[in-house]
Amino acid sequence: MSLLAIGINHNTASVDLREKVAFPPEKLDRALNELRDNTKVNGSVILSTCNRTEIYCDTGDTNKSQLIDWLVRFHDVPAEELKPSLYVYEEQAAIKHLMRVSCGLDSLVLGEPQILGR
């Protein structure tokens, strides 16, 4: 298993760009199916709020550039616009980032409960 987290947030991207790569509820099923079928990830979770879009994946044989290319295609955003704002965490760094996000330490308002408080 190879864990990967790819995303943008309020620190790395403008509101305009965050809106372009958000996953509205009506597109989540299609996105998760495409991730599984087109990139061959073993499992994935998409986290999408007004301040962040993140994809957490068990990548198997898939590399991060394939996932980034899929994100660019899915949202039809120019790669040169999206790639400078992306962050990528692998293995334990991905888990550490997820823990910081889930408890509100990586939020616009420190400690806000939006991720787990829904």
Score class of each variant (00 low, 15 high):
M1G: 14
L3A: 10
L4K: 09
A5M: 12
A5S: 12
I6F: 02
S14C: 06
D16T: 15
D16P: 02
D16N: 12
L17T: 00
L17P: 02
E19R: 14
K20E: 02
A22H: 10
A22K: 14
F23E: 04
P24Y: 04
E26I: 07
L28F: 10
D29R: 11
R36G: 06
D37F: 11
N38R: 13
T39Q: 02
I46T: 06
L47Y: 04
S48I: 00
N51A: 07
T53M: 09
E54C: 05
Y56L: 13
C57I: 07
T59Q: 14
G60S: 06
S65L: 09
Q66K: 13
L67E: 01
I68K: 07
I68S: 03
R73L: 11
L82T: 04
K83G: 02
P84R: 03
P84K: 03
P84H: 06
L86M: 04
L86Q: 03
Y87H: 08
V88M: 09
E90P: 05
E90W: 00
E91F: 07
A94V: 02
A94Y: 05
A94P: 04
I95D: 08
I95Y: 04
K96R: 15
H97Y: 09
R100Y: 14
V101T: 05
V101S: 02
S102C: 09
G111L: 02
E112F: 06
P113K: 13
L116T: 15
G117Q: 10
G117H: 05
